[in-house]
Structure formats: C-alpha cells, structure tokens
Design a protein around this nucleic acid. Structure first.
Lengths: 144, 144
DNA sequence: GCTTCTCCCATTGACGCCCATATGGTCCCA
DNA sequence: TGGGACCATATGGGCGTCAATGGGAGAAGC
C-alpha cells in the first residue's frame, strides 16, 4: 500500500492542533519522513504536505520549464517563497498555522486528502465542492 | 477465470457492517485479493470495489498526462482523494462508512452488483431504477 | 513577566477480532 | 418422494485495543 489515499476530517482543538489520520502517519513512518514540507496547491485552495522529496519534484518541474516564463516565475514564488517545514508532535498532531488558515479557509475542522505521494489539507466544504466539480467535469468523457 | 456476476441484497447490522455475498468472496480469494480498493463511480450513485489493480488502472491514466496539469490534479483528487482501501473482517463483512452512505444513499440495505472485474455497492431502489432505465436504453441518472 | 510551543498523561469512543446463533438450502436415506 | 441431518452463509453481539481528542505542566521565546 504505502501511499496516501482516501480522506478524513478531524477537529482542531483549543490549542490549534489537529491529529493527522493514523493511516497517513503510518505511510510517513514507512517512508521515513520526519520533516514535513508544506506548500500551497497551484490550483485548489489547499495546502500540500509531503516529505522533502516533494520539494525536489517541484524544483525539477520548475527547472524543466523555460526559466524566464511567467509560469516558472509563478511556481518558484509559491514553492520557494511559500513553502514551510513542519513537524508532528508525539501524538501525531500538527499546528494549524495562520499560513494554512488564510490560504485554505480552514477554521475549526481539517479534511485530510490523500494524493498518493503526498496529502493535502482542505476546508471540508471546499473539498466536497471541488470533488463534485471534478466529477462533473468527467461526465461526458468515457469512464474507464 | 471466475468473474463478479449477478446481484444480491444484504442487510446492514447495528454496527454498520454488511456481509459480502459468498460468491463474490470466492472470486476475491481466487484472485488473491485481500485489500479492497473502493471508489465512487463516475456516472452512477454507486461505489466500485475491486483489487489494487483497479487503482493501478486509474493511476496509469493519470500518469499518461502531464503530472502538474489541472487535468491530472482533478483526476487525482477523485482517484486518490476519493478512493479508500478496505479489508473484510473474518466473516467476510465490510463496514459501511459515511463515505459510502453519503454517495450512494444507502441506509439499511446494500445491493451488491457484479461488474465482471469488480463489483459495486448500490442503494437497492437506485439499482432497480438504473437497471430499468438501462433496459429502456436510457441513462438512469437520479438527481444526486 | 507573560505568551506560545512542546512534551506528557487521561479519557472516550470507534473499530477490529472473536465467538454464538439463526436461517435456508442440499444431500442422503428410508 | 418426503423427512431429517448436515453444512454454509448471513447475522448478532461481547470485548479489547488503538486512534482521536482534551487538558496540565514545564521549557523556550518576546
């Protein structure tokens, strides 16, 4: 298995912490990830979380683009300027910082969304809407 | 090679579990499937269930696109963010989670529907309507 | 000094694992 | 051919374990 899959919604406590789902934590430990790298998604109002390899992937993507293109410029601004390192506490919780709240609209609950090699933090309602929209977009295309 | 065929309706017990029909279970064990991958159908209000190979098929589809494209991002949101791995208990039952209930409308009974290489979970009434509609050559979409 | 973060422990509620019972079908034998 | 024993499946429920959550106290920073 060993990939981030499925979604779960957890509550933020009075101190601003939220438990990362156990299934995600086991993937993290399997992969030996201790430092989490967080950055804003390019399309959705969500924060992506993964190991340092996540940063590597984005840097390769930027490197592969024309370095003077607006696209590469914009990506670098988000990846290098917007990225944050975080750690979990002993119980597997992370602090929901203002950086996360402002970009995602998260206030009292966090939806954790698996994305195979990383996972994301969403405001629950926004996640449901985005998923519904993505499904609509596929209607009309042939399904597998 | 045996396939998932026919349909059967079973009751959900007080703890939210439901028995997978024995004929489906024997197909699962023949194929050596122990971990079940579940995903919302793209067209019908039903949840598809199959082996990890089901997920592999979708991932190949995603991999064929530019990994940073909006299209791949949306697809991953559905396949990774909406998919779940599940296991059967010792008696061959699975938990009917809110994820399944919300999408299918299932409350007290589950109709298992064979689809050759996978099977689906339906709300009984919705299944009958969709099948009747299919007989008439229509697409039996209920409003979700 | 006060606030903010980290480490630690307590509670509780959900889920997995186990065993018990019911129900319906099949096979064997009279 | 009808009755009964046997078996497999579906279903019900107890109980232990672990994850999610809440809160206290010490450490570090402003």
């Amino acid at each position: 298995m060993s990939r981030f899959l499925s979604n779960a919604t957890n509550r933020i406590d009075a101190k601003g912490r939220v438990s990362v789902p156990a299934s995600f934590r086991s993937v993290l430990s399997e992969r030996g990830i201790q430092e989490l790298y967080c950055l804003q998604d390019f399309i959705f109002p969500a924060v992506s979380v993964g190991g340092p390899d996540l940063l590597d992937r984005y840097e390769r993507q930027i490197a592969s683009a024309d370095p003077f293109s607006p696209e590469a410029n914009r990506m670098s601004l988000l990846v290098h300027g917007g990225g944050v390192f975080m750690r979990l506490d002993a119980e597997g919780r992370l602090m929901v910082t203002d950086f996360i709240r402002d970009f995602t609209g998260i206030s009292s609950e966090v939806t954790f969304v698996g994305r195979s090699d990383h996972f994301q933090l969403w405001q629950p309602q926004a996640f449901h809407e985005a998923q519904a929209a993505a499904r609509e977009g596929r209607l009309g295309l042939r399904s597998l």
